[in-house]
């Protein structure tokens, strides 16, 4: 494999790996974040979930 062509092959596969990693990473992070937010909301712990009862004495 000639040196200059090896550089082009490496660049092509490197760019592809980076873009695929970005696609996979963004999808996984998005899913993890959404799942956590949904779990928190359904458990009533979310920012706009049902309010916790006020346990302080009146």
């Amino acid at each position: 494999m000639s040196g200059s062509h090896a550089g082009f092959i490496l660049a092509a596969y490197g760019a592809t790996a980076l873009i695929l990693a970005a696609m996979i990473g963004a999808s996984l992070l998005g899913w993890r974040s959404a799942r956590r937010r949904l779990a928190a909301l359904e458990a009533g712990r979310g920012p706009a979930g049902p309010r916790a009862p006020d346990l302080r004495a009146p």
Binding site: S27, L28, G30, W31, A34, R35, R37, L38, L41, E42, G46, A48, G49
Partner: peptide, 17 residues
């Protein structure tokens, strides 16, 4: 599949909010 599950979860979050 993963992104569709994410989108469905986000829509449910919006409804719950």
């Amino acid at each position: 599949l993963l992104r569709m599950k994410t989108e469905l979860a986000l829509r449910r979050i919006e409804r719950l909010q």
